[in-house]
Design a protein around this nucleic acid. Structure first.
Lengths: 333, 333
DNA sequence: AGCGCTTTTGCAAGCGTGTGCAAATGCTGC
DNA sequence: GCAGCATTTGCACACGCTTGCAAAAGCGCT
């Protein structure tokens, strides 16, 4: 065990010549302290390098200031962008983010939530996976708030933030039809996330409304390599698709690269592609991908204001609109 | 204030018909409890959904289990990859990551470290920026461990993990010379990070050894857009460079895109490019960038084992070797 | 100076846990 | 049954902080 020795309020009190409670009050906004002693305390604290112990404060106040972010594939562009936004806004709201990385295994999210409980997090935000009902119930019963992003699956306690995936998918069909595409395809991953499935189903439904069929192919976990393989599968069909909606920008990038470099197809002349997420790479001039931008700042804002509100939190369900960003991967933008 | 009510050890004790200390011991590995009561406690805990309060435990044990990761630009590919590795390995070591996002401002890192102290983090890992000496001294004095990654700037207490940037830069020169490049350039950002500057200086020095001059251009913060602008500047010179070392893969991607799409140059025939970091995009078939891979897993491993070791930690300085990944952006790989 | 009032201060209890210490319990061998 | 020992248990204090409560101090007034 290392030699840990942080300076305590006691020492500050001694140096400032006041009681320990005075120190505590000097660091509590709105507490009853005279400006004179407040200054004395602050000065002494400064000299000693005193910082309030938030573990102890959290214990007393029953409010740790910690918010747990539960997420898999942190290194993915979209995830990391959302993460960035969330941490920034949390810090702004006076909270601090605890990051827990989950894998694809089932218990992973559950274990993460238990960790959140152990540290008495004020709230947890779930960006990936879905916890068991029993655990979410435990969280809510304990008074811990829960935010589920893009997880659909309505429960009563938590805040749900979702995008209107079906509506977006329908807009893609319109764009493809307007561009003169006739052979539609949907490139999906096998992850089966609610939001991914909603895009798929919405795309198929809207296509049917236009009297068009959709070829669906699924492979791997949503990433660049999977996109290449999906291109392999879809672009070697007798009836080669000419309008492909990829469930994710990463898939779309892989898809486009394979289409161009391996099948020598030109985008958008011979092949129209639309992605989803508007990751940074989508705007790079090698791709110039038409895609939907996720309102990450809005998502983060909604999440943070809800979870840092006072009083008992009401469960809510929010549905935000992704914005279609026209670039050059679809004809006639 | 919300209604927070977590189940405490007291309640578990009651339900299990034992004393509260027994509960505590049941959750402390190696404590003196009979297997019988241990089972009774675990059962009761399970039923009630009890989780040890780590705030209180941290207070008592003087060891919170929290490790603070201080980082700017989380959404950047390299940073998020390192972050992923760190969080994973921390979790593996039984620690939990607290993520603090800094901006470019000076006090930012200092404030982050103060936050780390407030939560009595066992250690903090600094991936960006450089804290004031007074603050690092405070951390060390308090017994908080410190890891600085790619920050050079040797101090005695912390663990420093650095790459051999100069050596890497020298290898780039060799590669360029072998490829027949004669007009070398270095594309850098204005950030002025030690590691970036080391690459620049190392490149210039090694080029001089080969009797070659280097044109240096710096712009913005290391990112795709900056890379495009650097290309603008460098590729419009009378003596157009034919071998460009970009301080970062992101810069390199922007640089390559501008070179190809805007100046219609072919890589590597007319222009050789090398990057640094080996971000995922470097392997995408639109780039196939020759670059140096940062040993992120090794970095994370070193960091985590050092900071989770017991006893008083010795300051250390580690220098790891980045690996040259040959792809297609340099002739004659 | 003395009164009533407001502001400031210190005391002490409490938050949920770990752990040293002494008492209690269980076990072994006579 | 009892001494001798090892194991288990409960009590009580400590960790560093917040906060209700009552006492103390300050202030304006007569």
């Amino acid at each position: 065990m290392s030699q840990r020795d942080f300076v305590s309020a006691e020492e500050v009190a001694q140096r400032a010549g006041v009681s320990r409670s005075a120190v505590s009050r000097a660091f509590t906004p709105g507490a009853s302290v005279s400006e004179a002693t407040r200054q004395k305390v602050l000065q002494a604290a400064e000299e000693l390098g005193y910082q309030v112990n938030h573990l102890a404060r959290g214990l007393m106040r029953n409010e740790s200031g910690i918010v747990c972010l539960i997420v898999s594939d942190v290194a993915t562009p979209y995830r990391s962008a959302l993460l960035r936004e969330l941490t920034l806004q949390l810090q702004h709201a006076g909270k601090v983010a605890m990051l827990i990385n989950t894998d694809r295994s089932d218990g992973s999210v559950n274990r993460a939530l238990q960790q959140a409980i152990r540290y008495r997090a004020d709230a947890s935000v779930i960006l990936s996976g879905l916890p068991d009902k029993s655990i979410t119930q435990l969280c809510l019963r304990s008074g811990q708030r829960l935010v589920l992003i893009n997880r659909d699956e309505d429960q009563s306690g938590p805040l749900h933030i979702n995008l209107d995936d079906r509506e977006a998918a329908a807009r893609v069909v319109t764009a493809f039809v307007r561009a003169g595409c006739t052979r539609l395809a949907f490139a999906n991953s096998e992850a089966g996330t609610p939001s991914l499935m909603a895009r798929e189903e919405g795309f198929i439904a809207a296509a049917r409304d236009h009297g068009l069929d959709v070829v669906v192919e699924r492979h791997g976990w949503t990433g660049y390599e999977a996109g290449r393989i999906l291109a392999q599968r879809l672009l070697t069909r007798k009836e080669r698709p000419d309008g492909v909606f990829c469930a994710t920008d990463l898939l779309a990038c892989g898809f486009m690269d394979a289409a161009r470099h391996q099948f020598s197809l030109s985008v958008p002349q011979q092949l129209c592609v639309v992605g989803f997420d508007d990751i940074e790479q989508a705007s790079w001039s090698s791709y110039r991908l038409t895609t939907f931008s996720q309102p990450v700042t809005a998502i983060a804002r909604e999440a943070v204001t809800w979870l840092s509100g006072s009083g008992v939190a009401q469960g809510r369900s929010l549905r935000l609109q992704p914005e279609l960003v026209w670039r050059d991967s679809v004809r006639g933008g």
